[in-house]
């Protein structure tokens, strides 16, 4: 277990938590994330409160979760669970993270399917839909702001938008073409930027 090294920064390395503790911690993270901020809550509870990972190990885990495909927070939960207790730990974290959102989604989904014809409901939902699309665009803008922009960056972002948005091409071939190209182009920008 190489993971023990991550805990060296603490005076007393805590004993591995039980599966129940892992599931409950993730239930709490899911509950706290009403309105977003899942990453921040995961850090608060995993690092500050439970001291299961050091800050550095958490950041490394977050990077890992972002590089691999999938919902970042789901990946992070699986990584944290695996680190703490192997496969059962991963399942416990996943269950804790997804149980409540799943139940809430089903409840809201049933309500939506039976009331979506009501004119007042559909009016409110149109307004909320416009807001949620705004959330999506705002996410795009705030990630864009944090990026060092090179001509290649703009080219790749533009190509992936046009191919999937207006052109409606299937995602897989677009990714197969764009990701290796983009990584290759940004390998060089990385080298140039290194002091």
């Amino acid at each position: 277990m190489t993971w023990k090294n991550d805990l060296q920064g603490f005076d007393e390395p805590p004993a591995p938590p039980s599966l129940r503790e892992i599931a409950l911690a993730y239930l709490k993270i899911a509950l706290s994330s009403f309105g977003g901020g899942l990453s921040a809550w995961a850090r608060q509870i995993i690092v500050e409160e439970k001291r299961w990972l050091s800050d550095e190990a958490f950041l490394s885990a977050l990077t890992f979760s972002r590089i691999l495909p999938g919902a970042n927070q789901v990946n992070l939960a699986v990584f944290v669970g695996t680190t703490l207790r192997g496969a059962p730990g991963a399942l416990a974290a996943l269950t804790g993270l997804l149980a409540l959102p799943l139940a809430i989604a089903v409840a809201f989904g049933m309500a939506y399917l039976s009331f979506s014809q009501n004119p007042l409901v559909s009016l409110v939902l149109s307004a909320l839909t416009a807001t949620s699309i705004g959330m999506t665009l705002a996410t795009g803008f705030s990630i864009s702001r944090r990026l060092p922009w090179h001509p290649a960056t703009l080219l790749v972002a533009g190509a992936s938008f046009v191919a999937i948005g207006p052109m409606k091409w299937p995602l897989l071939p677009v990714l197969v073409a764009l990701i290796p190209l983009s990584v290759a182009l940004h390998w060089r920008t990385a080298e140039r930027k290194a002091p």
Binding site: S160, V183, W187
Partner: peptide, 30 residues
């Protein structure tokens, strides 16, 4: 060294896809 390049390379693809998602959601219903 590939870690940084992969992170930097995936970011613009993801940004384009996020805006494409906004486009897809808005196109037919707004």
């Amino acid at each position: 060294p590939w870690r940084g390049a992969v992170e930097r390379g995936l970011a613009p693809v993801a940004i384009g896809l996020i805006f494409a998602g906004g486009w897809a959601l808005g196109r037919e219903i707004l």
